[in-house]
């Protein structure tokens, strides 16, 4: 059984302009100790997916349906109390902006011990000892002094380390990281990614990492989910997604990325911009921007189906397999040729 099994998840927001279908039928699963990466552009629904799993959307304006089975129990229908016991203990989360994600008026030590004492019946000094242990584990120098500092006294990278320490303090089975390195500089990003991988080995947590950066996904993920306009358009093992993607949007993403390992004169560009989720296009949501568009794309929403030779790899596209294989091979070969 998968650790987390999400099936047909839908999150709709009621707004003054109408209903925004921020997540519209998303399914994926995460195995114990593995890393799943969700990539997509802004507005693709990747962050909302995770906030829904964590139950952090405002209840008044949100309509949720589908299933998110955590160890067999549905998180979406669970009582508030029961859910609270899982949140922060079995599933923990870190956020994009470490500058604003820590409470400015509390010492970091207090924020860490709060996380411990919410879930464990320990004394203050035991909690503090555990907090110190974690601050040391995430590589904060002189933790016994820094534990009594306030968040604004830390740099951005150090704050993200504090966030990670806080998330791992109860040995969670799943760590959800929402754009954990987007706000950080590239050398700090490398530090944080290395740290997360090291800690994953140590703690054995599964990681769900959400990012817009294909590089980050390629670096850390075992499995990849590509989201576009509130839906999953492709998912599969990281090797497949980067070596033989089967969806024109994924091709566009890979081609539009300037990269260090190849030189191109012109980037492949996806024309236009992502659709409004108030009123998404009929049929395949990518069809207005897709260079391979056919009549069927405008009418029918393609299902997420297994790619013929690999039951782990799914793609939602009406194109025939041969064309997809050919185009994917051409794209990847083009990159490789220029790389050498």
């Amino acid at each position: 059984m998968a650790l987390l099994e999400v099936t047909d998840l839908r999150t709709y927001f009621r707004t003054d302009d109408g209903i925004v279908k921020a997540v519209d039928g998303v399914s994926f699963s995460i195995e114990k100790g593995k890393t799943l990466g969700i990539v997509g552009e802004s507005g693709s629904g990747k962050s909302v997916t995770c906030l829904t799993i964590m139950g952090l959307n405002s209840k008044r304006t949100t309509i949720t349906s589908g299933e998110a089975l955590w160890k067999g129990k549905n998180l979406l229908t669970m009582g508030a109390r029961e859910f609270r016991d899982i949140r922060g203990s079995e599933i923990a989360m870190i956020f994009q902006d470490p500058m604003t994600s820590l409470n400015p008026v509390h010492k970091v030590g207090k924020q860490l011990t709060e996380a411990i004492q919410l879930h464990r019946d320990v004394t203050k000094s035991q909690a503090r000892a555990r907090a110190l242990e974690l601050l040391k584990a995430v590589g904060i120098p002189r933790p016994e002094r820094r534990i009594d500092d306030y968040p604004h006294q830390f740099s951005g990278g150090m704050r993200q380390r504090v966030m990670i320490a806080m998330a791992l303090v109860n040995n969670p089975d799943l760590l959800i990281a929402d754009e954990p390195t987007t706000a950080l500089d590239v050398t700090t990003q490398a530090q944080i990614l290395t740290l997360m991988q090291k800690l994953q080995e140590e703690f054995g947590s599964a990681i769900l990492v959400i990012t817009h950066d294909l590089g980050v996904v390629a670096e850390v993920a075992d499995e990849v989910v590509v989201m576009y306009a509130a839906q999953v358009v492709e998912k599969g093992p990281v090797e497949r997604i980067f070596k033989r993607p089967h969806m024109p949007y994924t091709w566009g993403l890979l081609g539009s990325l300037p990269r260090l390992d190849s030189v191109v004169d012109r980037l492949v560009q996806i024309p236009g911009s992502p659709p409004s989720l108030l009123n998404p296009p009929r049929g395949c949501r990518f069809h207005p921007r897709c260079p391979y568009v056919m009549d069927v794309c405008k009418a029918d929403d393609p299902a997420l189906l297994p790619v013929f030779d690999d039951s782990d790899h799914f793609a939602a596209c009406h194109l025939d397999h041969e064309t997809k294989d050919r185009e994917a091979a051409k794209l990847i070969a083009g990159m490789m040729a220029q790389a050498s």
Partner: peptide, 9 residues
């Protein structure tokens, strides 16, 4: 240079 993630696993 070495810190930049490369989109190739």
């Amino acid at each position: 240079l070495s810190a930049v993630p490369i989109p190739d696993p």
